[in-house]
Design a binder for these strands. Structure first.
Lengths: 180, 180
DNA sequence: CGTGCACCTGTCCCGAGGGACATGTCAAGA
DNA sequence: TCTTGACATGTCCCTCGGGACAGGTGCACG
């Protein structure tokens, strides 16, 4: 149940509508913590019911902006410091790699090339983001400083996955038993 | 719905019981693709119903070993080559990093140290695994060759996350605006 | 003036995942 | 003989996530 804390954390930066939050999730967090708008609206409703956020204003087009309450801020902080980190990962590409031996050699090559391309592209995108941040394009608030750290993780993660896919192509399909 | 293909893929190596599969999932795949035994037994039942696996033998203690069928092998291969890779990631530690600015400086330091330790330990475990594989402890079958590739991904992934946690500690908590 | 489109907020259903709980079985050791 | 514990298989329930579907609103452009 991290979506609620993800929303609270972003709202801690300032008021936002469900639509804003959905966009921020897909833009910045899309590849790291996907969230669909239906869940966001539902969760915002619950959060409001619990007094962790409140409606700040109602704008045009039925737009409702939410503001985090003191209780909400306290709750994110509690989560950040007291709740144990969930390290669960579920990476289908790595699960698939266990079964590479079932694939034809050139199917595998095509697959690994595509994977490398995919990860390299994502890494580049985040690297570019980081560079723009370092140039000061997004200011120097503590919030963007934290985002810089998150982006760095993405750059490193995707770069190492791209490198891995490249490396995997150099591994012989079936290594013969070595002569002792 | 990757659990079914994960099970099929492992069964492609040879017959196994639900218990065996559960163990393999927690031992090798625990940190990459977690799966609880209730789901495994349920999925095996479904797979048997669809003719993708069949009961090979019934041993002591109600043990039922399953064997993959030709249709099952065809299905994994179809999945590997025809079904698009799901690159979804959901990394709570990275989501949390977006909110580091909400944490006290020394809370954050403790957190990052713990994270680095955690990832370093996992990386070491997999690195050790890889070394044993390279020494030939697990033989030189195509299956272990694929597992070697998977393990390499884990090593690289966890190493880069550990490095990231170390790096994050060197980032100043709140960077002041630079004088132009 | 109209109409299309981006904006904005939802409902609903289904399948997957997490975790507590239940049950039966064989072997080893007190 | 009794009991503990590892082996082995399952049920049940609840929540979360994915995705299809729906509906109302203001603006820009022809």
């Amino acid at each position: 149940m991290s979506l609620r804390h993800g929303l609270l954390g972003i709202l801690a930066e300032g008021p936002a509508s469900g639509y804003d939050l959905a966009r921020r999730f897909t833009e910045v967090l899309g590849s790291i913590w996907p969230a669909q708008h239906p869940k966001i609206y539902a969760e915002l409703g619950k959060l409001a019911g619990e007094g962790l956020v409140e409606v700040e204003s109602e704008g045009p087009r039925r737009r409702k902006a939410y503001r985090i309450t003191d209780a909400g801020v306290a709750e994110v902080k509690r989560w950040l410091t007291d709740v144990e980190v969930d390290h669960t990962m579920r990476l289908q590409p790595m699960l698939r790699s266990l079964f590479f031996w079932l694939m034809e050699t050139d199917e595998l090559r095509r697959h690994l090339e595509a994977e490398a391309r995919y990860y390299r592209e994502l890494a580049d995108r985040y690297r570019d983001y980081a560079a723009r941040k370092d140039r000061g394009e997004f200011g120097y608030s503590v919030q963007t400083q934290s985002m810089r750290v998150t982006i760095e993780a993405a750059v490193r993660l995707y770069t190492s996955l791209a490198d891995w896919a490249d490396w995997a192509q150099t591994v012989p399909p079936a290594q013969p038993a070595p002569e002792q």
